[in-house]
Design a protein around this nucleic acid. Structure first.
Lengths: 344, 344
DNA sequence: CTGTTAGCGCATTCAA
DNA sequence: TTGAATGCGCTAACAG
């Protein structure tokens, strides 16, 4: 394979210059330290021979590459799709290639892919999935990260993973609070939560934010007002139905991500026959693109997903300082049609 | 950067064996031609030193890599998200890394990324975006593809790009026909089409399929019953509104992708006040995940997106034969709530 | 400004 | 089965 490749050497020969000169012309970093004439000859030769540079060889010689890895749970999930889109847009401006790995939520895979990216000598890795509360997994990951950084690689997290990592944090707690207070302001006093898997830090923070807000409002979240489901549409449907069967008195429910909220909307309507927002108000989380197209249009906590992806790339380009860097991105409550006032 | 990396050489030394032996143990392709004792020693040394292999060096030495490129228009688009998810799942089984490049629909970028992937010595590239009817762009792309293949790389397309490329074709024409006939069977006789950009081959084929079906049914598509919009939600909204203002007599409209259909549904309802499906039936195309969550739930032509991604990866693993290979995937009409019978 | 030279880390002959 | 030697294509001193 890859036998017929034209080499820099051949280009140099054809142009009648040395290998070094050809390298300077074709890959030289801006500092144009090559004469006009030779430069032209090299470019002509490269053109004529259809030269394509060999990135692995460059990576080997330079001990660094133009690849950045992006590890997500699932590319088909709009949440990660948006983050990836932002990251790729920013990467393009820096002429970086993005290598995406999807763990499909298998915990071990994250580690495996990080290792793989490390083998690729990726310049940096963005960890976009939520961290988990599993201490063992976290420790092993931390070790791998340390190794990667020791080799000169950069690691940036989107979402909380640990205090000494550069990270882009979105206001999960803040967003949870925003949603709870929003519902409260609408008059709701019996509010429930459809949560995702408790190991996910993102979920914990969102729930925690809501919990605190409610407590400070004087209406602490009762244990049976919280139910847990898979972080999927189906998980949202099942959990929402379960919650409202157990607590039919609830007038509002906060669902901790939009994909689950889509399922919740379906479940409340089809399985339970409860009108949204007349009988129950629903608030989602993330504001993924399709949220506004659900009926009723989903009220939700908007997170700047694309911006987070961009910020992550920007962060990994800055030289890593002595202090871990953090970029905080705010959340915003978007009220659409799935929420209404209530008299209680 | 990447200075501290442990090398194979060091592992060999620590294990008291030669570089070659260490290489055979750690990277040898199955054929276990190394003695039990030495093997153990090498593995122990690698473990202890936390050795991570250097993929670029391997790529250079063996002149091939474990990277496959995937070029899409937009990762945030659920259509490509699904294809990417399928491809990544299949890639994982083969221990391949997927490098995704997003062109954001800029035509020139596709070429640039293909070139970049070629520079990476990617083992193969999957071209997932629709081809275009622009002869010049197509020719330049063909040239780049030929170069890539000449170097031993494999190229697989998802969607039609040319007769001599290995490709996974989804039934775009067939799906267009299915939709048209489905509407016809529901009693619709005045059917319109909201199309996407005419340069996209995918769009052409879908439209063509619908056109043919309608003609053979004895109700050829009138020129003013077809309108073109951007391949986005907003494009769908605007185009649908325009179409139904121009042809208020239409009782059904086929929208050539689901994202546009979401916009069309919104436009019909909010801008025009037309009830779907009572006044107008709407059929989308693709069956992306959120289609069933739109209200009314979108009737659409289902394409096996994930399967296409998987098929593409499988295709590029088979040795390329003398004849270009083609995998054909069928479409299926899914009737939900956005379509109804009509007497009109 | 340009050329010479010495590796980068690894796979792979070829001998032993 | 194992080891020594060679080169993959390129960059980065260094020397001129």
């Amino acid at each position: 394979m890859h036998t017929a490749g034209v080499t820099l050497q051949q280009v140099a020969q054809q142009a009648g210059v040395s290998l070094a000169t050809a390298s300077r012309v074709l890959h030289g970093s801006g500092s144009r330290t090559v004469g006009e004439e030779l430069r032209r000859r090299v470019e002509a030769a490269a053109q004529e021979l259809r030269y394509v540079s060999n990135a692995p060889a460059q990576a080997l010689a330079r001990a660094t590459s133009d690849v950045v890895g992006l590890i997500v749970h699932d590319v088909a999930d709009p949440y990660f799709g948006a983050i990836a889109a932002g990251a790729m847009r920013a990467a393009r401006e820096q002429r970086l290639m993005v290598m995406i790995a999807a763990t499909f939520r298998e915990p071990g895979l994250e580690l495996e892919y990080l290792r793989s990216l490390r083998a690729q000598r990726a310049r940096a890795v963005i960890l976009a999935g939520s961290g988990t509360a599993d201490a063992d997994a976290t420790a092993r990951l931390a070790e791998e990260i340390a190794g990667f950084e020791a080799d000169g690689g950069r690691v940036v997290c989107v979402g909380e993973r640990g205090p000494d990592l550069d990270t882009v944090v979105m206001a999960n707690r803040g967003g949870g609070g925003l949603a709870a207070r929003g519902l409260w302001d609408l008059g709701h006093r019996r509010i429930g939560v459809v949560s995702g898997p408790a190991e996910l830090l993102t979920v914990r923070h969102r729930l925690d934010g809501a919990r605190r807000a409610l407590r400070s409002l004087g209406a602490p979240l009762a244990p049976d007002a919280v139910t847990v489901g898979d972080f999927t549409r189906e998980g949202g449907r099942v959990a929402a139905v379960r919650l409202l069967r157990a607590r039919p008195d609830l007038t509002a429910v906060l669902v901790l991500n939009d994909v689950m909220a889509a399922g919740a909307l379906a479940g409340l309507r089809d399985d339970l026959g409860l009108a949204v927002p007349d009988r129950v108000s629903v608030v989602g989380f993330d504001d993924v693109p399709f949220a506004a197209d659900l009926r009723p249009a989903l009220s939700t906590v908007r997170l700047p997903l694309e911006a987070a992806g961009e910020a992550a790339v920007r962060l990994l380009l800055e030289p890593s300082g002595d202090e871990p860097r953090r970029v905080a991105l705010a959340a915003e409550l978007v009220l659409r049609d799935s929420t209404a006032t209530t008299v209680g």
